[in-house]
Amino acid sequence: MVPGINPVVLLFASIFTSNILLSNFLGMCSFISISKDMKSASGLGLAVTVVLTITAMLNWALLQYVIIPLDLLYLRYIIFIIVIAATVQILEMVIDRVSPALYMSLGIFLPLITVNCAILGVALFMQIRNYSFIQTVVYAFGSGLGWWLAIVTLAAIQKKLVKAPVPAGLKGPGITLITIGFMAMAFIGFSGMLRVQ
């Protein structure tokens, strides 16, 4: 049964209250390493959002018209990953053609989007929750925006932290994680925004 969730509610929920990173822990590896520089953080956020939306749509279509009718559900992991890898590959070529500067600044991170758990995660959540097409697009787009928001905020906080007296053992990933923890707590404050239908 397709759940009767209002797409607008789903959009806000995927950005704020069920943020793919701050609530579902997905998409963290590249998050922690790139969050130092605002510009590349923002570029990566945009790339992730685009990849998420496109792959979610493609995976939904494959799920509905190929995987389920042919009873191939147990192969969905590999099918989704192949779609994601192919999309990232094509996107890389497009970015290189359109804006070599952006391609340069994103550097290594583009191919890393393929193994970004958030992308596969969104596809799997979409399948488990049995979303309709509109819900899938909204959920994927919202998750991308949420991830983007989180990474840009984190980069901004990190810039301030550079001047702060952080203990040696905490420098780097330690303080980054604690910062993310506070951000996650702050986002929980958004919970009051939504009502279940």
């Binding site: 203990p167 040696a168 905490l170 990933p173 330690g174 994680l177 923890g181 996650a184 929980i188």
Partner: peptide, 19 residues
């Protein structure tokens, strides 16, 4: 039970281990 604790605990763990 909620998300933030995992981040805090992991951050603290890293702190202790690195120290």
């Amino acid at each position: 039970v909620m998300a933030p604790s995992a981040f805090f605990l992991l951050g603290t763990f890293i702190w202790v281990a690195k120290t």
